[in-house]
């Protein structure tokens, strides 16, 4: 993608299931990815809970979004980041996170990329717009 493409970041900061914010944020991601933009997704604060493996909403009678998360890369949502400090605070290791698609060439599962606070701060300040969810 061209370097001068519009840079849009979507931040996910709320815990899943207790409210609909994460679910509807994922719906926004799919649409934004279909536009010609340099899209970055950032899970931070309680938003990192959305990425934890082993979640099952069946008993709640809620469809959940694990299938959508697993298909992000297939729908051109390529740049998925997670805040390392938010993981550490919650005793979550990067190995416990779901995959967000498969590598086009190797077929290997893709995982959210863990960033430091400094890296995230820089990325945030490079954006043309930030969509908070």
């Amino acid at each position: 993608m061209a370097n001068d493409a519009f840079k849009l970041m979507i931040t996910v900061r709320k815990a899943p299931h207790g409210s609909i914010y994460v679910q509807e944020a994922i719906e926004v991601m799919f649409i934004m990815a279909s536009f010609d933009m340099d899209l970055s997704i950032v899970f931070l604060d309680d938003g990192v809970y959305a990425l934890k493996q082993g979640q099952n909403t069946k008993e709640l009678g809620i469809k959940g979004f694990s299938a959508s998360l697993a298909a992000l890369a297939d729908w051109d949502v390529k740049n998925v980041y997670v805040d390392g400090d938010s993981l550490t605070q919650r005793n979550i290791t990067p190995e416990q996170l779901v995959s967000v698609g498969e590598d086009e060439e190797t077929g290997q599962p893709l995982h959210p990329r863990v960033l430091t606070t400094d890296e995230l701060r820089v990325l945030m300040h490079q954006q043309d717009s930030i969509l908070s969810s």
């Binding site: 536009f35 933009m37 717009s129």
Partner: peptide, 20 residues
């Protein structure tokens, strides 16, 4: 309208301000 409208609004704008 659909979320595509939000995408095109954002693309056309200098600023996005979120209230929630």
């Amino acid at each position: 309208s659909g979320l595509g409208q939000l995408a095109s609004m954002i693309r056309k704008s200098d600023r996005l301000v979120t209230f929630g």
